[in-house]
Amino acid sequence: MTRTLALIHTSPMLVPMFDTLCARILPDWRIFHMVDESLIRNTIAVGRLDKPTTRRMVAQIQSAFEAGADAVLVTCSSIGPGIPVARQLFDGPIFRIDEAMAAQAVSIGRRVGVLATLGTTLEPTIQLIRDTAASQGRDCEVISDCCEGAFEAVLRGDTETHDQRVRASLDALMPKVDVVVLAQGSMARVLAAIPPESLSVPVYSSPELAIQQIRSTL
């Protein structure tokens, strides 16, 4: 029997990337996407994930299960802190895009670098890294950086400026840490364009690790 995965996005730009990943890693699954840009826009406006936006995210997850999803992946790290709430309400598996990445990072290094282009993503990712390290009984020091202007550039369609700023920040962060995580799924293509020999420490992005987690878990 074919199983179904629903992906909840806050940006349509992630859809093609996840289509490609799912076709390779979950070839026997049916996939459908749900996009609500207001979830991230409202979170940015407030400066954090608030209760009204959490309720609307939960409503999206409910809609996904009612539409026939066997599992749901929320692909926006900024709204990830609301997922524990949703897990209390639904029996079906709900995946947070950055959980597998956090677990991988804290398992191999004590000094973890977190790179983001949004403050609303940076803080939840830092907290997730710390919580994950605590759950594994590991010491962890988080060193973070927010790439100023990169998010605004990508909103203008200027992906070249976005990628250049992310790469420059990554180059500056790597000498300070044992491992780096890229806090947003949209940053994955920057990593894909960097030759592995140019990376002085392991660098992880969340999309592929999240899809692999779904495969190994289900």
Rank of each mutant, 00 (worst) to 15 (best):
L14T: 07
A210M: 10
M187C: 03
R110S: 03
S107W: 09
P93C: 09
D50T: 04
G137W: 01
R24Q: 13
I97K: 09
I61M: 01
A64H: 12
S200G: 08
M13C: 06
R3Y: 09
P195D: 06
V201K: 14
A210S: 14
F18Q: 11
N42C: 08
I214A: 08
I25C: 00
F95G: 06
P27N: 03
W29G: 04
H33D: 10
S205P: 04
A193E: 14
F95D: 08
R215A: 15
G92M: 02
Q164W: 06
L39I: 11
T132R: 02
M17T: 13
R96W: 06
A69R: 15
S216Y: 11
S11R: 03
V203N: 00
E123M: 13
A45D: 10
P81L: 04
A210P: 13
A64F: 06
G157H: 04
S11C: 01
R48S: 14
F151V: 04
A133T: 05
I211C: 08
T121E: 14
V58H: 02
M187G: 02
T159Q: 15
P16Q: 01
P52D: 03
V180Y: 00
Q184L: 09
A150T: 14
I97L: 11
A183P: 08
R130E: 14
I194V: 12
Q213G: 05
A150F: 12
P175W: 03
A192P: 00
T4I: 12
M34W: 10
V166K: 00
D28L: 04
C146E: 11
A193W: 02
D19S: 12
G47D: 13
S38C: 10
S135V: 06
D36G: 08
S216T: 14
G92F: 00
I31N: 04
Q136N: 12
W29S: 10
A210W: 15
M13I: 14
I83C: 05
S216P: 00
Q164D: 13
L191C: 01
